[in-house]
Amino acid sequence: MNEIARRKMFGLFLVLPAFLFVFLVLFLPAANTIIKSFTEFSPMNLQQNDFVGLKNYQKIFGNEEFMDSFFNTLHFAGVSVFFELILGLVLALILNKALAFRGVIRTAILFPWVLPTALNAIIWRWLFNTDFGFFNSFMKSFGLISRNINWLGEVSLAMNSMIWVAVWKTSSFIALILLTGLQSINDELYEAASIDGASGFQKIKSITLPLLIPSILLALLFRSMDALRSFELPFALTQGGPGGATQTLSLFGYRQFFQFLKFDQGAAVSVVQFLFILVLGLIYIRVLKGERDT
């Protein structure tokens, strides 16, 4: 064995524990989930493990609740990520500029993101409470409303309330990613633009945004993947109610697994969700790569 091969072997040996760990807790369960989604499997009967083809998939696609959850998830992810991006961009521009109290402002903006989602949702549940929540009493005291608004109890409002909580919490995460992008833009570009007499808006439009696109795509990738598997927020805020209006795919899958103990159909839900997020991720990465190459 020559020196290089020996060093390679030693390197592989050092990587082995980490690889084993990832293999055991990540790949194995994931592969198991995919296999189980094609079998009839329930914890009630461990011996029964028959291959049933696409039966579990037929069952979940035939379930009205699954389709509703699917579209709820798309609605939630699409709208919340859109507003998070806009708000995140504004925050990032402020963070990039703010000179006085820079540390204080940065901490303040990051604060919502640091709060655990479940805790966050419980706080908002009280704020949204129809009869003694903050929003209604605040708006009532200023005469803005005469009747209490049922934030989390009305089908048309509940999803918007949930999106609002998500935007409040995660805009700062997007801001953080965009901020690193902003700081990598060379100041000379702005100086040159100023000399040419460009206005502030023109500078944002022609310098900041084009150079920020890779960061924006990266933020979108992270956030949309995250939003598409949102679980804690609906779980703690609304439990998927009212009438299933805020039930996401993850929450639906959780019910199949842990409440109804239908591990096979729960596995099928997870696989569908996984494939969907995978395809979306691949598209983003492709676009991102295209951006980099040009």
């Binding site: 409470n129 109890g153 109610g241």
Partner: peptide
């Protein structure tokens, strides 16, 4: 019954009742 009853869990109902409402 208020429309908000559709969001109420036992403790929420108790809080409202306890407030005399």
């Amino acid at each position: 019954a208020p429309e908000s009853i559709l969001t109420y869990k036992p403790n929420d109902a108790m809080a409202l009742f306890r407030q005399g409402r």
